[in-house]
Computed example of a mutant assay.
Amino acid sequence: MSIEDRSWMYEGWNDNGCHSQEWVQKTNAFLDHAFSLVLDSQKFGVLCPCSDCDNRVRQRRPIMSLHLCKRGFTLGYTIWTEHGEKPFSEPTLENANDTADGLDEMLADIGDAMHTVSDEDEP
């Protein structure tokens, strides 16, 4: 499973200090998404992911847009858990080698067979 590249959130600046067109388009898409998830979001607002509000303060869309433009997104907020995304976790070492095809059991059986002494091998 690949995670969408969200480097635009933090690197979306032109040389003149303005936001890039990509940043503007993707930030507007983020705002559309975030506000579409919350009932009466225009009235009550949505958690603001700017670096100051840090997903703790609800803001209406015009204020949130201004916050993101001036302050930027809170650092490390590339998985939008406060805006409808599920957290992504790497497989743990414990589960990384689990297979549903029985290969582990077959390899264990071969290993056991190689380490057993047959009657012919005894002196």
Rank of each mutant, 00 (worst) to 15 (best):
residue 3 I to M: 09
residue 4 E to C: 10
residue 4 E to A: 15
residue 5 D to H: 03
residue 5 D to T: 00
residue 5 D to P: 03
residue 6 R to M: 08
residue 7 S to K: 02
residue 9 M to K: 00
residue 10 Y to K: 00
residue 11 E to A: 10
residue 11 E to W: 03
residue 12 G to W: 05
residue 12 G to P: 06
residue 15 D to F: 09
residue 16 N to L: 10
residue 17 G to S: 08
residue 17 G to T: 01
residue 17 G to C: 06
residue 18 C to A: 11
residue 19 H to D: 02
residue 20 S to G: 05
residue 21 Q to V: 04
residue 23 W to M: 01
residue 23 W to C: 02
residue 23 W to N: 00
residue 24 V to H: 01
residue 25 Q to T: 01
residue 25 Q to R: 07
residue 25 Q to P: 01
residue 26 K to W: 04
residue 26 K to L: 10
residue 26 K to R: 11
residue 27 T to S: 04
residue 28 N to L: 07
residue 29 A to I: 03
residue 29 A to W: 10
residue 29 A to H: 06
residue 30 F to R: 09
residue 33 H to Q: 09
residue 34 A to P: 11
residue 34 A to C: 13
residue 34 A to T: 04
residue 34 A to W: 08
residue 35 F to I: 00
residue 35 F to G: 03
residue 36 S to A: 08
residue 36 S to V: 00
residue 37 L to W: 12
residue 38 V to W: 08
residue 38 V to F: 15
residue 39 L to F: 14
residue 40 D to G: 11
residue 40 D to I: 03
residue 41 S to D: 07
residue 41 S to T: 04
residue 43 K to I: 03
residue 43 K to A: 08
residue 43 K to L: 13
residue 43 K to Q: 08
residue 44 F to N: 06
residue 45 G to S: 05
residue 46 V to C: 11
residue 47 L to T: 00
residue 47 L to Q: 04
residue 48 C to Q: 01
residue 48 C to K: 03
residue 51 S to P: 09
residue 51 S to I: 00
residue 51 S to M: 05
residue 52 D to H: 15
residue 52 D to Q: 14
residue 52 D to L: 14
residue 53 C to I: 01
residue 53 C to Q: 09
residue 54 D to K: 14
residue 54 D to R: 14
residue 55 N to G: 12
residue 55 N to F: 06
residue 56 R to A: 15
residue 56 R to C: 15
residue 56 R to S: 13
residue 59 Q to I: 00
residue 61 R to E: 07
residue 61 R to H: 09
residue 61 R to C: 07
residue 62 P to L: 12
residue 63 I to T: 03
residue 65 S to T: 03
residue 66 L to P: 00
residue 66 L to F: 08
residue 67 H to T: 01
residue 67 H to W: 04
residue 67 H to V: 03
residue 68 L to E: 00
residue 68 L to H: 01
residue 68 L to Q: 01
residue 69 C to H: 07
residue 69 C to M: 10
residue 71 R to G: 02
residue 71 R to L: 03
residue 72 G to H: 04
residue 73 F to R: 00
residue 74 T to Y: 05
residue 75 L to H: 08
residue 76 G to A: 07
residue 76 G to H: 05
residue 76 G to K: 08
residue 76 G to N: 04
residue 78 T to G: 08
residue 79 I to F: 06
residue 79 I to H: 04
residue 79 I to T: 02
residue 80 W to T: 00
residue 80 W to H: 02
residue 81 T to I: 14
residue 81 T to A: 15
residue 83 H to V: 00
residue 83 H to R: 04
residue 83 H to G: 05
residue 84 G to V: 06
residue 84 G to P: 10
residue 84 G to W: 13
residue 85 E to R: 08
residue 85 E to S: 11
residue 85 E to L: 10
residue 85 E to N: 07
residue 86 K to I: 04
residue 86 K to M: 09
residue 87 P to Q: 06
residue 88 F to H: 09
residue 88 F to Q: 02
residue 89 S to C: 12
residue 90 E to C: 12
residue 92 T to V: 08
residue 93 L to E: 11
residue 93 L to R: 15
residue 94 E to C: 09
residue 94 E to F: 12
residue 98 D to E: 14
residue 98 D to M: 15
residue 99 T to V: 08
residue 99 T to C: 14
residue 100 A to S: 15
residue 100 A to R: 13
residue 101 D to M: 09
residue 101 D to V: 03
residue 102 G to F: 05
residue 103 L to Q: 13
residue 103 L to W: 11
residue 107 L to G: 05
residue 107 L to S: 06
residue 109 D to E: 07
residue 109 D to Q: 10
residue 110 I to G: 12
